[in-house]
Design a protein around this nucleic acid. Structure first.
Lengths: 144, 144
DNA sequence: TACAACCTGTGCGTTACACATAGGTCAAGG
DNA sequence: CCTTGACCTATGTGTAACGCACAGGTTGTA
């Protein structure tokens, strides 16, 4: 039987993360000592390693919970797994594009600011650098 | 004097977002009605538009709070603004790279799974699809 | 006056942890 | 036996930026 710390070592997971997974019910202790310490088996270490794999593939902890619960009931989670990752691929692509746009905005701004001096704020303006950036009024949707 | 909803319209910001900004003290009501309703001036709308610009450039609400507080005190926030965005450019670049790696992992997995049938979980395995993905044991650091 | 539609402030939920707190455990030293 | 210190434990709270729901107030119309 392993303690939290030993389980953490065995599964290559930080101990505070193991405790977090316990808190949200993603894993359960196999047994409990009289003093309240939680005890685990090597099977729990394997489960934790599975969780790390799934996270590495982009699954959220909630999805992993669903998957393991399905598996406990003997139902195949594979169909859901395929669907989730397809969805995640779409979402991730969109996020990456968004972040690349942001990257461009930031780099353009920094370049533009190179030619501008610092300013003292007055009642009208908070920071003229930020306010000078183009496209702040109608960047996404133009109203007729 | 404007109500929350009118301020939201005036500044092109969703009303619930205005309420959130009020909650965290990013903006303050200029006055208060007897019934507790908060009232604003057109200056607050300008402030809100500034906040949206800064957010569009990747500043966090906390940073924006610092910037506006500096400006209130008559100190120029421009120096901080330059530093923050440089830092943000670095962070964002790293995040984008990380997400592109994830994207590749997900796409490779999905392709690989095309050739694999769904499986029924047994005691040893939770989801053989996920467990079949390479590089899960030693993706970052290989132990001797 | 009754009713519906809308608006108000506020509390809680989200994700995946990080940190702090308060206390328990264990071996060494006196 | 007691204490000290290092380490370990469980749990509460904080994070970013809102989204949603709730109970109640306000306004317009009949």
């Amino acid at each position: 039987m392993l303690t939290v710390n030993e389980l953490a070592l065995e599964s290559d997971t930080p101990a505070h993360v193991v405790r977090y997974y316990l808190r949200i019910g993603l894993i359960q202790p196999a047994a409990q000592q009289e003093n309240g310490y939680r005890l685990f088996t090597s099977n729990d270490a394997a489960r934790l390693r599975f969780i790390r794999m799934a996270k590495h593939l982009g699954f959220t902890l909630n999805e992993i919970k669903q998957i393991t619960q399905h598996a406990e009931l003997g139902e195949s989670p594979c169909d859901d797994v395929r669907k989730i990752i397809q969805q995640r691929i779409h979402e991730n692509r969109a996020k990456i594009e968004e972040m690349m746009k942001l990257q461009e905005r930031m780099e353009q701004a920094l370049e533009q600011w190179d030619l501008m001096p610092d300013g003292i704020p007055d009642g009208n303006s908070v920071c003229h650098l930020i306010e000078s950036v183009e496209g702040s009024e109608g960047h996404c949707h133009t109203e007729t």
